[in-house]
Structure formats: structure tokens, C-alpha cells
């Protein structure tokens, strides 16, 4: 379909117009490759249209790392994102997926392994990237965040609401790229590992194949319970077995809580909120943040049960 995939090259300029007509004039920038005949298939066209967007993001993903000075490594990132987009037309490609995918390429030399690693990670994250003209999937998690803060720190929630920030849009980036922009590269990986271990569920792999398998845990077998990650176990114990919040939501909550005083005192507008939260970049401790997140989680479950 696109011979560039796997060739160590990729495109950054549009290859087709929106009506499917080939755009040969960009073949120079696109390493000599161009589409020869008009694209009529809707799914194929949709995909072709996004290839250059992926390319534009690939060339600016983690460029401060020497790994990406090598163009063939950039091409691997482009390959994986392009293939993922082809296989998941309902989600497509959304900026931020590149931030999620980048570490997998660095860590796993084999491109196929990196792809499947990314694909599995996206099972947890893909709903955040589902967008319509009027909403983004991540807003569901923002809504959960709103519930959590409202429950554990009603004063802060009220304050944010007064500032017209009750939708928590300012937290969008933390959730979409899982703190890749707030933490250093290594800290973010450390955080991911911690989070995913805490969220471990013995039914997880089965649920990848059949989503309804996820919560078939009804009898409280203590041996099985031990296998759950710390975070997931609390949910099982408390009987909250329905579709529930991810740990990431509580990590954001813990970040907000560390800034609680400044937010209440200094934030007079949403701009101040963004500013105060912007100051955390590079100053976060992944381990501490997770620890706090678990505390907030416990508090939330207790209060939610009481209501």
C-alpha cells in the first residue's frame, strides 16, 4: 500500500488531497515516494491523509535524545504509528500517541515487538484519544478527576469551579501523554512501570482478548487477591468492580493536592492555575506522586462508600 513502511523513510508532506487526488509535487520532501492514482477507498484515504501529520510529529518527538538523530529510528516511530492508525480507524492518529510510543521504540529493538508493546499500552489509553467534533475521550477521565477532587477536597474543587475550571481541561496533557511532559524521560518510564504494576489484574491478559473477562472475579479467593496490583486490589476488596478510575487520575489528583495551597491562595483565574501547574515540570518525584495517589484513592473509596 505504502512501500515506505519498513524502508527507513517516511513522509512529512501531504501525499493526497482531501478529495483523494495525488499530490506529486511533495514527492521530493517525501523521499521520492508519491501516490500514483487517485484514492477512492474511504478508509484508505482517511489513513493517507494522516500520514504526513504523523511525520510532522515524528520529527519533533523527543528530539533532544541522540537516539532520534538517526533518521531510521524516526522512521520506526512513523511505521508503528502509521500501522496502528491503519488498524484502528475508529481512533485514528491523535497527537500525543507519539509521546506514548517513543519509549517503546527506544527500549525494544525489534520493530514488531515495539509495535505490540505500544498496541497493548494503547488498550489502556486508547479511549482518551477517541475524538468527535464536540468532545475528546480524555474528558471522561477529566470527569472522573473532577469527581475525585470534589470528594476528597471539596474546597479546591469549588475554587476551581469558581474559576470556570470545573472541567479540569488544564489536566488534559498529563492524562493524554501520561506525564511524559511533566516528568523527565526516565522518571516517566519509572512512573509508568509503577502505575502499571499497581494496576495489574490477573485477568488483564484475558481481557485483552475478551473485554467481558475483565471482572469475572466474584469469589474472594485470597490467593488470587494477592496477585492483584496494590491499586487494583483495593477496588476488588471494596466491591467497586464496575468500570473504574485509572491510577493516572489519582496521580493527577495528587499533583493538584501538592499545589493545593497555592491554587487556593494565588489562583485568581484559569491562567494562574495553568501557571502554577506548569511550575511542576521537572520537579515531580514519581514515587512520591504514586504514594500520594494511593492515599487519595483510599480516601476517595472511603468517602464514596459513605455517600
Amino acid at each position: 500500500m505504502v512501500p515506505l513502511i519498513g524502508s527507513g523513510k517516511f513522509v512529512t508532506m501531504a501525499v493526497v488531497a482531501e478529495d483523494g487526488q495525488p499530490l506529486e509535487e511533495s514527492s521530493v520532501e517525501n523521499q521520492g515516494w508519491f501516490v500514483k492514482t487517485a484514492i477512492t477507498d474511504k478508509r484508505l484515504l482517511q489513513w493517507m491523509l494522516v500520514l504526513s501529520q504523523i511525520g510532522l510529529d515524528v520529527v519533533r518527538t523527543d528530539r533532544y535524545l541522540s537516539f532520534y538523530e538517526n533518521e531510521s529510528n524516526q522512521a520506526r516511530l512513523w511505521d508503528i504509528l502509521s500501522i496502528y492508525t491503519w488498524l484502528n480507524p475508529d481512533i485514528g492518529y491523535v497527537q500525543g500517541m507519539n509521546d506514548i510510543c517513543s519509549p517503546m521504540i527506544i527500549l525494544l529493538e525489534d520493530e514488531a515487538d515495539a509495535f505490540w508493546c505500544f498496541e497493548r499500552a494503547m488498550r489502556r489509553l486508547r479511549e482518551n484519544f477517541r475524538t468527535t467534533a464536540t468532545s475528546m475521550g480524555v474528558q471522561t477521565q477529566l470527569g472522573m478527576l473532577s469527581q475525585v477532587i470534589k470528594t476528597v477536597d471539596p474546597r479546591l474543587h469549588q475554587h476551581l469551579e469558581d474559576l470556570d475550571g470545573g472541567e479540569y481541561l488544564f489536566a488534559i496533557r498529563m492524562l493524554m501523554v501520561l506525564f511524559r511532559r511533566e516528568f523527565s524521560f526516565l522518571d516517566a518510564l519509572y512512573l509508568w512501570e509503577l502505575m502499571w504494576a499497581m494496576e495489574y489484574n490477573p485477568n488483564l491478559f484475558g481481557s485483552y482478548e475478551k473485554p467481558e473477562n475483565r471482572n469475572n472475579f466474584s469469589e474472594q479467593d485470597p490467593r488470587l487477591l494477592k496477585k492483584y496490583g496494590k491499586f487494583e486490589r483495593k477496588y476488588v476488596k471494596s466491591g467497586h468492580n464496575e468500570q473504574h478510575n485509572t491510577l493516572a487520575v489519582f496521580v493527577v489528583a495528587s499533583v493538584l493536592e501538592t499545589k493545593n495551597k497555592r491554587l487556593l491562595k494565588e489562583a485568581k483565574g484559569l491562567d494562574d492555575v495553568v501557571q502554577i501547574l506548569g511550575d511542576i515540570a521537572g520537579n515531580l518525584d514519581a514515587r512520591k506522586a504514586c504514594k500520594e495517589a494511593l492515599k487519595i484513592h483510599e480516601k476517595f473509596l472511603k468517602k464514596a462508600n459513605r455517600q
Partner: peptide, 10 residues
């Protein structure tokens, strides 16, 4: 080396 903006910044 600037990255794609996610959401909004100011």
C-alpha cells in the same frame, strides 16, 4: 526540539 502542543499552553 519543540514538541507538538497537547491541549493549550500560554
Amino acid at each position: 526540539n519543540s514538541k507538538a502542543t497537547i491541549g493549550v499552553e500560554f
